[in-house]
Each structure stands twice: as structure tokens, then as C-alpha cells.
Amino acid sequence: MEVVDPQQLGMFTEGELMSVGMDTFIHRIDSTEVIYQPRRKRAKLIGKYLMGDLLGEGSYGKVKEVLDSETLCRRAVKILKKKKLRRIPNGEANVKKEIQLLRRLRHKNVIQLVDVLYNEEKQKMYMVMEYCVCGMQEMLDSVPEKRFPVCQAHGYFCQLIDGLEYLHSQGIVHKDIKPGNLLLTTGGTLKISDLGVAEALHPFAADDTCRTSQGSPAFQPPEIANGLDTFSGFKVDIWSAGVTLYNITTGLYPFEGDNIYKLFENIGKGSYAIPGDCGPPLSDLLKGMLEYEPAKRFSIRQIRQHSWFRKKHPPAEAPVPIPPSPDTKDRWRSMTVVPYLEDLHGADEDEDLFDIEDDIIYTQDFTVPGQVPEEEASHNGQRRGLPKAVCMNGTEAAQLSTKSRAEGRAPNPARKACSASSKIRRLSACKQQ
């Protein structure tokens, strides 16, 4: 084909351009004929944790799935940006308080904090938690009735009371019990989460009196709706648990309003109706937990002794299953770290194939690490110290990083047969305790 000078094309009309061969290198194709290559998922490591896909996002930050490269346990990490926390009232204080509380709590029905990582340079905090497959609110939203069968609701409620009793025994008032803060594992274990607005009572406090509340409006008791200066913290949790039980068994809320002012007005009056299909035992329990006067409201001991709580409820309806993943529609909620794991395991070791967030990740503290002497050669063979940054567990980050890069360049065919977990650990520049 004859090559045409581009400067001469402006002298031709459209018809003349076609005659000189423009149609031979300008093609129009339908979008259905285009085959897009999927974007390669680059592996990203935060300390010893391999990052997966997004699980959810809230006002405080994002939650992603991660894999512990040492234990191969599935975890969830809450990623918090200090810049964003400053824009939220009491944001930083709530996060630090939640970390302090979770560090000393150990119960099967309370979410466990596994690790805390802090990135000084990017001003990011990573709260590594045990993995929960789904939230209770997500399960309720997945069915038209917006409720659980009585047998399933009873099982979840009993676990909620177990976890709540443990928190109260530790002198902690949750203040925000609701389905949105109750998570579930694949085995059906309920976990109380989000202790950001919780309050730890003084060890020598005479009672459970509280003065502040930041919980969700629909789950607040009349004493808070009416603006009382002080109130019983434990009875606030009992009320919120009662509203939660009402919601998961009926699909409704005892109090509603077009806006928060109308909602608080209705809560302050204390008038509500219980659907007739709840039955006398459940209705009596709800009335005891939603008692207007805090002094007359049920205690956890009274809830445990109630006939509806103690009764064994046979399954009359099919239980609400864990819904498919909202993004991938995966009904099994498979591990989202698998594509990243395959990338590390299947590809040659190259620095361009993975990302390490930083050479140094500070753990379990908000301060910069200490310094240790770096050896410097002298005339008599002895070495003197220069400062060298280290990880919180004493690992020399720069030395590990250099060693990792040197190993990656060394030709050794046997290394390709290593397991995925050992490869992740070798790529991680800074081991965590």
C-alpha cells in the first residue's frame, strides 16, 4: 500500500481520502468484538498479612480480608486513616479506646483483636480482627420478611446475652447493641463488635452510672431520649438488646419516626405494640426488656430465667442462610486472597510482582521504634555504632529488605517449588510478632 504524507491529507475531501486508502487503516468495530484482558491483581503485604478484597466500608474506614502468612488464618483488617478520623467527632479517641478494650477481652461471643499495625509515614492504622463471614443486618436484609425464624432468632439472642453478660462482668457498657454490630462466623457463632462508643466503668465505681451516649437513635432507651444527665449503663444495653430481639423476630421496630426528633419523642413516651403472632412468652420477655422505668427493666439474670429464653424451640421454618457475597455473588464466600496468593505462588519472584506497604510497620504502639547501633568497621576489626531503624520486634528492616532482594536475584530452581506461605513470609520485609 502506498504511504501517504499526513501533511497532504488536509487537502483532500472525505471521498478523496477514502480513495487514497484511509479506509485501510481506520476501522470501526462493535464493542462486543473487544476482548478485555482482566487487570492483574497485584499482591500487597502489610507486615506478614497478605491483603485481599474489600469486605465493607463504614464511617471510620474500610475493612478488607487478609491472610496471615505465618498461621494461614483468615483475618479481617480495619484500615483507618488518621486524616479521616480527625474529621469525625471523637474519632481518634474512640478508636484508641476500642483498641484498649479489645486487647483485654477474651470471649467467644466478643470479636477478638489479633494485631494492631501502624504506618507512621502514611498515617494509617490497621486493626487486624478475627474473620466473620457476614453481619446479622446483612442476613436480615437478604430476606423479604426482614426477620429470622424463632428457632434461629433464639439461638442468636442467647449468644448475644452470653457476650453481653461477659462485657458487663468486665465493667464495660457497649451502648450500641444492634444487628449491624453483631457479626457471624461460618459456624454460626455470634460476635459482638464495634466497641468504639463503649465505656469502661471505673474499677471502684459504686454502680453503672453513665453520662454520655453515642449509640444508634432507634435503639436508645427513654432515659436517653428524654435527655437525662445520668442513667444506668447496663440497663441501656438491656433495652438495646430488647429492641434487637423485637427486630429479628418481627422484622419491625418498636419505635419509629420520620426524623430523629419524632423518633425520640415516640421513644420518650414509651408506647409501642407487640405483634400478636409473637406469642405470650416472647411478648412477656419483650415487655420486661423494654420496660420504661430502668429500675423495673429486666436484668440479665431475669432474662436467663425467663421461660422463652430457657425453652427449646424446634425449627418450624427453614433458617435464613448466609447470603452470597454482594460484589462477586459467591454463595460460598470464598477467600478473596486466592488470586493474590496464586500471583505470588505461580509467578517468578520479581520485585515488580508484589507490593510491600512499607519497609517498617510499627505494631502494638503509636510511637516510632527505637534505634540500635549499626556496626561500623574500624582499624582493629571492631565496629562502632551508628543508628539503624528496627521493627518493634527488633528485626532490622533494611537488612531483611536487602537480603530479600538478593535472594530474589539468585538463580535457584529449587526455590520455585516452595509453598505459597513460605514465599509470602520471604517477601515480607518486616516480620511481626
Results as ranks from 00 to 15, higher is better:
residue 202 H to I: 10
residue 397 A to H: 15
residue 92 E to Q: 08
residue 136 M to W: 00
residue 395 T to F: 04
residue 143 V to C: 09
residue 165 E to R: 08
residue 144 P to E: 15
residue 34 V to Y: 06
residue 402 T to E: 14
residue 423 K to L: 12
residue 91 G to I: 15
residue 323 P to G: 07
residue 297 R to K: 00
residue 49 Y to R: 02
residue 76 A to M: 00
residue 373 P to I: 10
residue 144 P to K: 15
residue 334 S to G: 10
residue 329 K to Q: 07
residue 260 I to W: 08
residue 429 A to C: 15
residue 258 D to C: 08
residue 190 L to I: 06
residue 189 T to N: 02
residue 80 L to E: 11
residue 227 G to R: 03
residue 91 G to P: 15
residue 148 F to G: 00
residue 272 Y to R: 03
residue 91 G to M: 03
residue 55 L to R: 08
residue 355 D to Q: 09
residue 346 G to C: 08
residue 137 Q to V: 09
residue 346 G to H: 15
residue 106 R to V: 14
residue 259 N to S: 10
residue 224 I to K: 08
residue 401 S to I: 12
residue 78 K to G: 01
residue 134 C to V: 03
residue 282 L to V: 04
residue 92 E to N: 11
residue 292 Y to L: 02
residue 113 L to S: 02
residue 397 A to N: 03
residue 396 E to Y: 09
residue 189 T to V: 10
residue 396 E to T: 07
residue 299 S to E: 14
residue 299 S to T: 14
residue 415 R to K: 08
residue 369 P to V: 08
residue 229 D to L: 06
residue 293 E to I: 08
residue 383 R to Q: 13
residue 72 L to H: 01
residue 191 K to V: 08
residue 287 K to F: 09
residue 112 Q to N: 13
residue 300 I to C: 04
residue 6 P to R: 09
residue 391 C to L: 13
residue 408 G to M: 14
residue 31 S to I: 11
residue 147 R to C: 09
residue 251 G to W: 00
residue 319 P to N: 12
residue 285 L to T: 00
residue 282 L to Y: 06
residue 265 E to T: 14
residue 149 P to C: 05
residue 226 N to R: 13
residue 175 K to A: 05
residue 36 Y to D: 09
residue 57 E to V: 05
residue 287 K to W: 01
residue 201 L to R: 05
residue 307 S to L: 12
residue 140 L to P: 00
residue 4 V to H: 15
residue 357 E to C: 11
residue 202 H to F: 04
residue 141 D to S: 08
residue 94 N to P: 08
residue 98 E to V: 01
residue 54 L to W: 03
residue 408 G to N: 13
residue 248 I to L: 06
residue 29 I to Y: 07
residue 394 G to P: 13
residue 232 S to L: 06
residue 230 T to M: 05
residue 382 Q to S: 12
residue 302 Q to C: 06
residue 242 G to K: 01
residue 319 P to L: 10
residue 188 G to I: 06
residue 226 N to Q: 12
residue 157 F to L: 01
residue 52 G to C: 12
residue 190 L to D: 00
residue 403 K to M: 00
residue 343 D to I: 14
residue 406 A to G: 10
residue 56 G to S: 04
residue 423 K to H: 05
residue 390 V to C: 06
residue 255 F to M: 04
residue 148 F to Y: 05
residue 147 R to M: 06
residue 404 S to F: 04
residue 170 Q to D: 00
residue 361 I to L: 10
residue 155 G to A: 09
residue 332 W to L: 13
residue 131 Y to G: 04
residue 387 P to N: 15
residue 425 R to V: 05
residue 205 A to D: 10
residue 278 C to T: 09
residue 240 S to P: 00
residue 191 K to T: 08
residue 66 V to M: 00
residue 336 T to Y: 08
residue 283 S to A: 09
residue 397 A to T: 13
residue 279 G to F: 09
residue 140 L to K: 06
residue 349 E to W: 07
residue 378 S to Q: 04
residue 209 T to H: 10
residue 202 H to D: 04
residue 86 R to M: 00
residue 363 T to R: 07
residue 304 R to G: 09
residue 317 E to Y: 06
residue 232 S to C: 08
residue 350 D to R: 15
residue 407 E to T: 15
residue 330 D to E: 04
residue 385 G to A: 12
residue 39 R to E: 00
residue 137 Q to A: 06
residue 213 S to L: 08
residue 354 F to T: 02
residue 68 D to L: 02
residue 125 M to L: 06
residue 179 P to W: 01
residue 99 I to P: 01
residue 96 K to W: 03
residue 338 V to I: 12
residue 188 G to P: 11
residue 366 F to S: 14
residue 273 A to F: 06
residue 180 G to M: 05
residue 122 K to D: 13
residue 19 S to E: 12
